[in-house]
């Protein structure tokens, strides 16, 4: 009888341990799911803001009422059939919601170099699949659509910002992909140069 009790007690310790582990797993899962859903749900809200800002060029429309940023462009990759809405300013908070335009570099669609950065597990996870020669297109709020062709894909150090000095569009994300350790110092830099630019008259969508 006593022995049976001890066994039962030991079994319940194991059970508490398992429940604790389950809770830990649930919190990990929730955290991951939160990051993912934040990233993708925000894109949906930002798309709405994008439609509004096309209708009202020049107005900075926040995607949600307390946002301190605004949508600046739509990035599409035709052959992968995907599109991303880009926010202004590469702060950590903005990056959680969308690819962001790093304002320390040049303006989007300008003469110089412009940089868009995004997380490698959400919005820019696709960057591992793009190839040199692929086309990108960038639609700005003034209705212009710019086409770029990727001419280099390289891994650089985070401080090597000169690598993104050439005129064109540079997409940046952390490297390596799917690393379990945070804080890598390397970046995947996909550089594309302008091939054509079309100004399309925007209709109120």
């Amino acid at each position: 009888m006593a022995k049976g009790k001890r066994v039962a007690a030991r079994a319940s310790y194991w059970r508490y341990g398992a429940i604790a582990l389950f809770a830990l797993g649930a919190s990990f899962f929730a955290q991951g799911a939160y990051m993912q859903s934040k990233a993708w749900l925000a894109q949906w809200l930002i798309e709405r803001a994008w439609q509004q800002s096309l209708a009202a060029p020049g107005a900075n429309i926040p995607p949600w009422y307390y946002a301190d940023t605004h949508v600046v462009a739509k990035l599409s990759v035709p052959h992968l059939a995907l599109q991303r809405f880009v926010l202004a300013g590469s702060s950590g908070r903005n990056l959680a919601f969308a690819p962001t335009h790093d304002e320390a570099f040049g303006p989007l669609g300008g003469e110089g170099a412009s940089v868009i950065a995004a997380h490698n597990d959400t919005h820019f996870a696709f960057l591992r699949h793009v190839q040199v020669g692929d086309e990108l297109s960038l639609t700005l709020r003034d209705g212009r659509t710019l086409s770029y062709r990727i001419d280099s894909k390289q891994v650089v150090h985070q401080s090597d910002t000169q690598a993104a000095a050439a005129s064109g569009l540079h997409l940046v994300t952390c490297y390596p992909f799917n690393s379990p350790v945070a804080g890598t110092e390397l970046r995947l830099l996909v550089s594309a140069s302008l091939i054509s630019s079309s100004s399309r008259s925007t209709t109120n969508a």
């Binding site: 990990f28 790093d102 950065a117 910002t161 799917n178 690393s179 945070a182």
Partner: peptide, 12 residues
């Protein structure tokens, strides 16, 4: 360049 590594897939 901005810090853009995410561990969400690992967490999941």
């Amino acid at each position: 360049f901005a810090q853009t590594d995410g561990q969400s897939l690992w967490h999941l």
